[in-house]
């Protein structure tokens, strides 16, 4: 018998919410549901077309390097089914427990992000992704709309990133809320 019962709860369950800084909503910070986050690795020389076709469905793909992707969001089917469909060129692993996603949107979202990362956000297309550092935290940054971004971060750093984003967003007015 374990001494302590382990209970599943969202990494950002106790995160600060509300409005911070100046009035107005320059930026909105939202914790996204911890529903699906898989990592896909391709064997060297594999044609990525089957995975890209898979990603065209309800699971957006985030390219994080040569032969490496994150599959995020709500989708149908299990990991085993996806793995069977994509074998043998691709290996999938479930990282849902390991990474947390937050969304950052609003007219000043890009300005806020530019304080922490050197990725040229003007050149990041909608649907594009970049693995980078935000301050000292490794994040997967993706643009989900003209003024909307998504950040995936290691679970243990989620609260630090959350608090840092609020601090950096105070000059624009930032609203933070759970999903």
């Amino acid at each position: 018998m374990p001494d302590t019962l382990l209970t599943a709860r969202p990494a950002l369950a106790n995160a600060a919410t509300g409005h911070f800084g100046l009035p107005g909503a320059g930026v909105t910070l939202t914790a996204l549901p911890e529903d699906r986050l898989w990592q896909a690795l391709a064997r060297p020389g594999t044609d990525p077309a089957p995975l890209l076709a898979y990603g065209a469905g309800p699971c957006p793909l985030r390219s994080i390097g040569p032969g490496q992707w994150l599959i995020v969001g709500v989708g149908t089917g299990t990991l085993a089914e996806a793995q069977a469909a994509l074998a043998p060129g691709f290996a999938l692993s479930d990282q849902t427990h390991g990474r947390v996603r937050v969304s950052l949107s609003g007219p000043s979202a890009a300005d806020l992000l530019a304080k922490g990362t050197a990725v040229n956000l003007a050149l990041l297309p909608e649907g594009g992704a970049a693995q980078t550092l935000f301050g000292h935290l490794g994040i997967t940054l993706a643009r989900t709309g003209p003024e909307a971004f998504e950040l995936a971060v290691l679970r243990g750093f989620a609260l630090s990133l959350w608090d840092e984003l609020i601090l950096l967003g105070r000059e624009y007015g930032i609203g933070a809320r759970a999903a």
């Binding site: 040569p66 050197a118 980078t132």
Partner: peptide
């Protein structure tokens, strides 16, 4: 060559 220009801190 894969990510574009990035600071040396990365």
């Amino acid at each position: 060559p894969h990510c574009g220009p990035r600071p040396k801190e990365e």
